[in-house]
Simulated assay, not measured.
Amino acid sequence: MESSLYTIGKVVNTHGVRGEVRVIQVTDFEDRFEPGNVVYFISPDGGKPQTLTIRTHRTHKNFQLVSFEDYPSLNDVEPMKGGELAISEEQQGELSEGEFYYHEIIGCEVHTTSGEHIGQIKEILSPGANDVWVIKRKGKKDALIPYIEQVVKQINVDEKKVTIEPMEGLLD
């Protein structure tokens, strides 16, 4: 596979006996899991990505339950636990102005509007109404920054830099 792969979900467990896996979604695009779509399975121990076609998809609690063509049983999907589902660069769609893919944000350095370096974005959580960016800080516990207008003031993915205006108590 020539192009880069981008994670859309983490396989955390199996579900039932009919070959479903429980996936934590790490994409804003729910249609990534539509039946018929092609995804790539990346094993936790590395190796060549495996091409899979989604057979079924449904949402259950906070998980996406997904099954794949040619993987009809629990035994077929058991080895997938701990792996990731990904898409190729060609499968990414065009975004509107001011929208970004997670992989463009992760790795960005975060500074305040006054120039103080906070740390680097290591993960994006999607718990509800807005995303929360996890900032790895040197010598401190991770900071959680809500992706809202009042806090995130500027994003420059080319320079891998984000500028924030922290609300009171946000960085404590």
Rank of each mutant, 00 (worst) to 15 (best):
Q50V: 15
P72D: 04
V11Y: 01
S73T: 15
V17W: 13
I106L: 10
E149V: 04
Q150H: 13
I105M: 01
I118L: 12
E34K: 10
K10N: 11
E89S: 08
D31R: 04
V66F: 01
W133P: 06
I164S: 08
K153L: 06
K138F: 02
N75T: 12
D158F: 05
Q50M: 13
Q25R: 14
Y101W: 15
V157R: 14
K161W: 05
E20W: 14
G16R: 12
G139P: 03
E165M: 14
L171R: 06
Q64T: 03
N37D: 02
V21G: 01
K153F: 05
I105R: 10
T112A: 09
V77R: 00
E84H: 15
V162D: 08
P72R: 06
P146V: 01
D70P: 02
G169N: 03
M1N: 15
D76F: 06
S3D: 15
L52M: 00
L95E: 03
V12S: 12
C108M: 07
G83E: 11
G115S: 02
V12Y: 07
L95Y: 07
G119L: 08
I106P: 13
I24N: 13
Q154D: 13
V12K: 03
I118V: 11
G107W: 08
G119T: 07
D31V: 08
K140D: 06
F41S: 00
L171Q: 06
A129D: 14
L65K: 00
N75L: 08
L5D: 10
S88N: 01
G119V: 11
F68R: 02
L52C: 01
G9H: 12
S88V: 00
T113R: 14
I54G: 05
D131G: 07
I42C: 04
T113I: 15
S96E: 14
Y71H: 15
K61V: 10
G139I: 01
R58E: 08
V134T: 03
G16H: 10
H60G: 11
V26Q: 13
I164K: 02
N75S: 11
V110A: 05
P49L: 02
I105Y: 04
E20P: 05
Q50T: 14
N13H: 01
D28C: 09
H111C: 00
F29H: 12
I164N: 11
L65G: 05
P49I: 00
I148V: 13
Q50N: 13
L85Y: 11
A86W: 06
Y102N: 09
G93Q: 12
T7P: 11
G19L: 03
F41V: 00
E109N: 13
